[in-house]
Design a protein around this nucleic acid. Sequence first.
DNA 1: CTGAAAGCGCTTACAG
DNA 2: CTGAAAGCGCTTACAG
Lengths: 348, 348
Amino acid sequence: MTKIDDVARLAGVSTATVSRALRGLPTVSAATRRRVLAAAEQLEYAVSPSASRLAGGRTGTVAVVVPRITRWFFGIVVETVEDFLHQAGYDLLLHNLGGREQIRQRVLRTANLHKRVDAIMLVATPLRPAELTALAALDLPGVIISSGTVVPGWPCVRIDDVAAARTATRHLLDLGHRRIAHISGDPDDELAFTTHLDRRRGYRDALREAGLHPDPSLDVESQFTIDGGNRATEELLRRGDPPTAIFAACDEMAMGAMTALRDAGLRVPQDVSVIGIDDHDLAGVLGLSTIAQPAAEQGLLGARILLDPLGGRTLEPPGRPGGDPPGSPVILPTRLVVRASTAPPRAN
Amino acid sequence: MTKIDDVARLAGVSTATVSRALRGLPTVSAATRRRVLAAAEQLEYAVSPSASRLAGGRTGTVAVVVPRITRWFFGIVVETVEDFLHQAGYDLLLHNLGGREQIRQRVLRTANLHKRVDAIMLVATPLRPAELTALAALDLPGVIISSGTVVPGWPCVRIDDVAAARTATRHLLDLGHRRIAHISGDPDDELAFTTHLDRRRGYRDALREAGLHPDPSLDVESQFTIDGGNRATEELLRRGDPPTAIFAACDEMAMGAMTALRDAGLRVPQDVSVIGIDDHDLAGVLGLSTIAQPAAEQGLLGARILLDPLGGRTLEPPGRPGGDPPGSPVILPTRLVVRASTAPPRAN
DNA sequence: CTGAAAGCGCTTACAG
DNA sequence: CTGAAAGCGCTTACAG
């Protein structure tokens, strides 16, 4: 195991100089730096992260907390953030809550992040009061992606869920639909999302703007998964007088809805139109109309803001009007993508 | 920041004793341990990982290297392994190669893993000779999941890809198909899988066992993705005289094949049967017949073997016959799942 | 069962 | 621009 002393000896300098040269500090002469780098190269020296962290007081690590990495949105975010962090020289400490209360408690306690990371990215993870207090006590920089809670001082990057849902619903209204169902997440989901609340609001807003009354019998709560969409749609059909269109709160639910409809002998879109939110990898394959949201961009921008020593004010996406109150979230745009799953209702 | 000295002072013992008590070492009296734990609790003490690692010589971290976390198999593996590692008190350092040569080089160099992790899990990541040398030089325990290279001394957990492919092909043969195409991964894929080679071999073996000659015009290479399956199938159809069945090397390719067939006006399974390998989350939704492979089990078993101080010989799955030569991979079973995408060919 | 002391391998004021 | 020395916060022989 070659250590810094070996490099110092070979280069004929002190360990302090090796440390400075290797980290690219400006206070090293070009000639010295060259000698140090050559020595380090020759000895295949790699700094010991533990020693460096202990002495330097920085961990060089960012915690990324996601509900479930196997879900489309979270997978994309992690992939993007991982790439960016590693390029910036940071390690990524992954925490996948996995819907298990036990894991959630393990992760979201002070002790588990303290002294272990320099910063925290919370993806769609709402916090309970005690968790919020614990995180705030860490006094670490953090960023929120997509939704969850507001942590004082932590920037947030997300889409406008209300607007996205409104656009989806309006697309169905524009096609002529009037009996529009909504299937969405459940407050009792172990993962405790809040996203579905905003999306339901957008759905209801759009209906009201069109002069329609939201019909509770057309609004079914389930899980944010394929299976959840499947079951919600089955429940919907069980209630009789099926809708002519379904707005699913995410693409995975929409896929489950398409299956349930097919299993019930209904065709999409001839009998029932379906639209989701996300633009999941498979949306194109399935011909699913959707509201595309920029998952990678949310992760990337969040990571940049997190690492930006200036606090990220200079990293806002172009085109965003200045003058927002400090602390307001960065909202990234969504986009209606019309595919084969939505069409006008059959002739009345 | 409360540190170990604070706890020692409050508990009225030395820091050595605090250290021992907190780590559950047996050489501490029950009374002392109780006092130490109470003091630590009261002060909300959390050990500094950097200091502990530097002094103890263990990083408490496992590197997990995957080609792309957004693909079904790798997402499942990471989720499973993350849970197990954290329960065992280890951190998971995630490396997502993402098909970028630059990242690959960064990750698979000695310097980046050395002194940074205690063990390495390589998921479906074939190594070049130089990378193999570098990893071997690390002299760390490691485990291989699914395939890739053989690293001397590293156990391997996987399925039998040849057998899985043979079963898939035989299912089509049993249904009466004779013109069976195969779409699979490309050697030029940036991720450089080897899995597709085994699967192609199983396909050809099955054909030969049925007295058929593999027809090169029915064998198209592409990428292991939905889009890859889509393009491979388009190519297949472009060649004229389409097959009556397609065996896709993975479910994601099979999904792309289903889309391409539908876009070409062909029905599944009436005109063309399709089968994949994986049992992807969406396989059920899409009615895709497949060879199910236990992704979570491969990850979990690999992680257990990695952390097992005994080297994992006691952790082999039950039912596995003893007497395998040491170093031979642990093979987990696969299972044919027949859904709606496979049926007998139309009347000749 | 417990403690005093050395040491893990760096980085950081401080001095020059 | 460079070095000597202290210190980061633990763990580990070594003694007792």
